[in-house]
Design a protein around this nucleic acid. Structure first.
Lengths: 140, 140
DNA sequence: TTAGTTATTGCAAAAACTTGCAATAAGGAG
DNA sequence: CTCCTTATTGCAAGTTTTTGCAATAACTAA
């Protein structure tokens, strides 16, 4: 709960409220160290706050993403996975074994500028997931 | 159906079969001109093949992706969307209005090489979806 | 501290997606 | 053309995700 008040004031300053449900989910993500699926988040949050419901978890995650406290990323299979917002990074998942590594955002910064210039879009900031074949699965 | 036999032989040469269900889905995607959600594909395919079922649509899409006849991409909300495989491109979706444009893959080619060199992964070929703010929604 | 406003939650039901398994039918062999 | 093998489908039931709405409770202001 050390970080709770930090999150709380971030939300309050934008006119939102801190609730036990949001705390529980933030706590789960804060201590997970990696991204989790909504189902897994629900299961863990329930340990801290037994009454929490699934719809609340889904809505809360969406809310926290909109407020930049949580970062969504794509799992290989087309679903979202969530982690606490922090250092900007991306993922590469091995198409063969599912193994996954992080890529620092600095490698992509250049591309983002090119994209913004070419498209006219501004403020591009997606978290990306690449699929490839990892060194140990590489055949040829 | 002009293109059907083309697809059929591609599958048969790999030991798979061409079926009315696969034909219907390929036909839908071939004529859509854009990416569609599984639900929308199901609805349209049913017009061509009334008996087709939802599980078949989901399984077929996954199958066609694995065989590179269909290209999956992420919609802004975390779900998959599908289109006929063809010219390599990516998407930028406006976070505000949902408007969406295509970006040619050539802009990213450089990045892919950098990523492969930096990570040791090979054969990186994801279709990417970026989120940004489009020119007409840009405020400041 | 209390009362009021309204953001947020839980409930219930729907929609979207997945899975296992028996029945079917595509395509090759004879 | 007919039979056989087995890839593929449909069915039925499960899980996951979404939605609407009434009840609740966080925060603000007095």
């Amino acid at each position: 709960m050390s970080c709770g008040s930090e999150y709380a004031s971030q939300l309050r300053s934008r006119g939102f409220r801190m609730t036990p449900q949001r705390m529980a989910i933030l706590h789960v993500l804060h201590h997970a160290g990696t991204h989790l699926s909504p189902g897994e988040i629900y299961r863990r949050a329930r340990r801290e706050l037994p009454g929490i419901t699934e719809p609340t978890v889904y809505r809360t995650l969406e809310f926290l993403v909109e407020n930049s406290l949580v970062q969504p990323s794509h799992s290989g299979n087309g679903h979202f996975t969530y982690q606490i917002a922090g250092r900007d990074h991306h993922h590469i998942i091995c198409r063969a074994c599912g193994n996954e590594i992080e890529v620092d955002h600095s490698l992509l910064e250049n591309l983002y500028q090119i994209l913004e210039k070419a498209s006219g879009f501004r403020n591009i900031n997606s978290h990306l997931t690449f699929l490839g074949v990892c060194p140990s699965c590489g055949t040829s």
